[in-house]
Write a protein that binds this DNA or RNA. Sequence first.
DNA 1: ACCTGAACACCGTTCAAGT
DNA 2: ACCTGAACACCGTTCAAGT
Lengths: 198, 198
Amino acid sequence: MARRNQHSREELQGLAIQAVRELVVEKGLEKLSVRKVADRIGYTAGMLYHVFANLDDLILHANAATLDQLLGDMDSAADSSPARALHQMASAYLALAREQTALWQMVFMHRMQNAAPVPDWYQQKTAALFDRVERQMAGLATDHDPAQIHLAARTLWSGVHGIAVLAAQDKLVVAGDVDEQAMLESLLEHYLNSWAGE
Amino acid sequence: MARRNQHSREELQGLAIQAVRELVVEKGLEKLSVRKVADRIGYTAGMLYHVFANLDDLILHANAATLDQLLGDMDSAADSSPARALHQMASAYLALAREQTALWQMVFMHRMQNAAPVPDWYQQKTAALFDRVERQMAGLATDHDPAQIHLAARTLWSGVHGIAVLAAQDKLVVAGDVDEQAMLESLLEHYLNSWAGE
DNA sequence: ACCTGAACACCGTTCAAGT
DNA sequence: ACCTGAACACCGTTCAAGT
């Protein structure tokens, strides 16, 4: 058999992406396979290679949906004062790691095979994330030059990311005796205190 | 054939661990396989299951060597003043991520299969790392209670870890326009400034 | 044009059988 | 007791061939 034509190319992509997200939530990233994705949507594994370049490409597209969701959450915090906005953005970032651990892990822990470069469209999405932070930092300390703001934004957000890593790990590995939300507040308060000048 | 008996059980373990570390440095974690490890040391894959529980167990043992090296580097910084010791420890942590990226990645990015729990002996090694940090933090602010010191140590070190993640990523994915050493100094200076009270 | 299904080159893991 | 080698149940990926 062949030529079923029940779905357009775009519908097929959407179905596959949805299946990836479901499977990863149900069984975890390490159990994900092209064959299982194909099974779930009622096609063969070979078909997916007509619609995606390979498994990495498929995962990247599934991650794009998660990143868009995160960017949306972070944007809805942008109206508050810079300090409040940064707190809310960090909380949104941590919430994803805690509540959607598997999806968060797929975004931030998945490494490309063959050390293949991450495509441009994807890198732009992750760069957009740092931009949101930088913009708020700029509003917080108007006397700092752009290079200082760039460095501080990346420093602060690396810290937030590190806490999210710990939160995701603890949820998966061992229930830690840590309050990640408290760590987040400690980081933001003390770092910004000193950086923005009290 | 069988019963070659050229190596003791302990020698076999050492050979396998060494082969894992070499292979991961040469080809990366995603290319590592039980069969390749066995090939490199001149045995069959089956043999490794008489000496290790499975691939995760083998990787954990290889990671133990890296963690011991890191703990050693961090300990040799313990003589300085608390603030200087923390800077040196953080630099040692970052140096591992930058210079031994593949080994660092295997320690901090490898997830267990089947969501199996990380064994006790391994968790104690990673806990030892936080202990080193906590001890220095205690020396820095004698008026803070143990719970505050515990929280601050984990917060600061999550930040250091986040910067190391970024450094490893940039080295593998795309040469970033970031100076991670400067980020480290920014984090330590500002966080400790405010936390320890100016 | 769209999709299949078989094939290729791999995996981790187990375990009866050889010495 | 020590280790092999074959087997099992999987992988990602390709592509000639069917409709």
